[in-house]
Design a binder for these strands. Structure first.
Lengths: 367, 367
DNA sequence: CTGAAAGCGCTAACAT
DNA sequence: ATGTTAGCGCTTTCAG
């Protein structure tokens, strides 16, 4: 039917306008601000519009309003399971608000991160920084140019949403204390990490209040390998391994368990291990890991929610971070203290290869 | 210095042009097509440009060229570890080509997927479908509107990149055969999955060639829970569990291991288990999972690479899928056959769960 | 090699 | 309530 003349490409408001016998601006209004056009004409326009298969061109709209309806989500490493749930939360929330998300993967490199930011900066209306490698100062500068919110990190003057590290850690320590452990070790994550600082601080305070001896290892990478390294140090220490440890995150906790098991030390029975985050894998390892569950998905949602509020003109209100509750998920990697702190590990002999020796305490499930 | 008059917002080519004493078009050329402007003027323009902090506005460029330099990446479930590596590959490759990626999470829902596609369609130059829930016909239709490539699925007439399921499966079966297993069971994934079909077919063929008996379970969800359910059925079967199984994917394999272990059956020693994909968790479970490593990252890269080739005008060349090599990673979940096939499992007691009624061995080539 | 000018598709005053 | 008319910032003929 419709003879759109010689025009090529998808139909525009002009095509619709012509076909419906109205002005282009009326078509624009029909979609951009319903109510400012009479019911009948609106109906007719819509009819023509979808007969022609018209769809607004977001670029054109963006150019004229300078609102792209896009936000960038930067993650330090897409491959790291912690980010999966965050991405889901952010993506879902953005979609709900009609925004689209540009995902950038920093691949743990500050350079890559800067470049990625560079690329998206002129396009997006806001940025969510999930695990940035950049210094506070850079982030603060960036935040002056564009609405920005950072996850799991507290940068003065910048919006942020964080886990309630203090309470989460507190629960973990209480749990361990309740199981009869009186000397705890914290397996430190990366030195530069704000979250690590917050966690170790909370760890010490809780230990102090509950009259438990506390100690922290040196800093290690927040990975399985980092956990393994930390565990080896503990095993080699003169005092031998402690009866209970809390790791910076689940990945490290898993590394600790692995190293312990390789050395013939039984997780839970000999040494209780607690992680932080509650990533998917944590329930799949043996024994399943007791961990402080960070509200990953909620953090993503909250971040986008508040970011968009600012985008829409709300006051940044960045004095205080949004802190989301964490909860302890008790699984099989923690148990009552059985061993005297003196007896060193049984086998210092290392079973080369994979963790065969694992004496699984079957206590699975989440009591 | 520069008095950009009353203009507000970031500097444009007009500001740069004025400041450098040239025409806007010259500034445009300087960046859009170097070489068509004299070295000196170009230098001066660049100098002015970054003194003013000029940055091209991608929207404006997109509007006039109708090239947004954005591609959409749709994943069925961001939370599923298989996608992590794919996303990384796709993202990295896109970035290298100066493209930005819009990440959409279908959350396992066809409806969400359609809506998401709807939202990004008018913005992107191409689409990568990673695990779509939509029927072939819909995908084919979509592919006519925009360059599109699908991962791990073969849709006639549509570009696609897949794992070499046949060879990967072949390796797995050979491995198991070499360990003395002569009767293998394939744990089926989702019924609608193209990959599942390809894998079970390859499984049967390999078994046939190597003179091993093969059988496949009923279809189950490609998750840990699905694997657990499948394992329960095997445990309940009159024949008892087989001595070796290959699962549709790692998640299911892990579920199988878990159920087996809970029933007191030793993985590797009693039953060898092989997975497919090689997601991160596979090396973390106990025992670490032997699996067919799918080239996840490479698939993401290849997809974007070829998608962009089409975007740049290459012929779609979609007769044949790009097939990427898989390789077998042998870990601790497989071992020499030790047990006679007669002895039934210890725990026939069924822990009430999601597993449904009777166990019907799916139409199988027996052999 | 560079300038002038006409769009790209949509929005937003400013009329009417 | 609807039409007119400028732009938004960049690219791209077409001249010179």
């Amino acid at each position: 039917m419709a003879d759109r003349g010689t025009r090529r490409g998808p139909p525009t408001i002009y095509d619709v306008a012509a076909e419906a016998g109205v002005a282009p601006s009326t078509v624009s209004r029909t979609f951009a601000r319903p109510g400012r056009v009479s019911a009948e004409t609106a109906a007719r326009i819509r009819e023509v519009a979808d007969r022609l298969g018209y769809r607004a061109n977001p670029m054109a709209r963006a150019l004229s309003t300078s609102q792209s309806r896009m936000v960038a989500l930067m993650v330090a490493d897409v491959t790291n399971p912690v980010f999966a749930a965050m991405i889901r939360g952010a993506q879902a929330q953005a979609a709900e608000d009609g925004f689209v998300v540009l995902l950038e993967d920093a691949r743990e490199s500050g350079a890559v991160e800067r470049e990625a930011l560079e690329r998206v900066l002129p396009v997006v209306e806001g940025i969510v920084l999930g695990g940035s490698r950049m210094p506070d100062s850079t982030i603060r500068t960036l935040a002056k140019q564009v609405p920005l919110i950072v996850l799991n990190r507290d940068v003065a003057g910048v919006l942020s949403v964080v886990t309630d590290n203090a309470r989460g850690m507190r629960r973990a320590v209480e749990h361990l204390g309740g199981l009869g452990h009186d000397s705890l070790v914290y397996v430190s994550g990366p030195e530069a990490s704000w979250a690590d600082g917050a966690r170790v601080r909370a760890f010490r305070e809780a230990g102090h209040e509950l009259q438990l001896a506390t100690r922290a290892t040196r800093h290690h990478a927040p990975t399985v390998a980092g956990g393994v390294a930390a565990a080896r140090e503990m095993l080699d220490a003169a005092t031998g391994p402690p009866t209970a440890v809390v790791a910076y995150n689940d990945l490290m906790a898993i590394g600790v368990m692995r190293a312990l098991q390789d050395a013939g030390v039984a997780v839970a029975d000999d040494v209780s291990v607690v992680g932080f985050d509650d990533i998917l894998v944590s329930q799949l390892v043996s024994p399943p890991l007791t961990t402080v569950a960070a509200p990953l998905r909620a953090m993503g949602e909250t971040a986008v929610q508040n970011l968009l509020a600012v985008v829409r003109g709300a006051q940044p209100h960045a004095e205080r971070a949004f802190v989301l509750p964490a909860r302890l998920v008790v699984r099989g990697s923690t148990a009552h203290r059985r061993r005297k702190r003196t007896s060193p590990a049984l086998g210092t002999t290392r079973v080369s290869g994979s963790a065969e020796s694992a004496s699984r305490s079957t206590s699975s499930g989440e009591r």
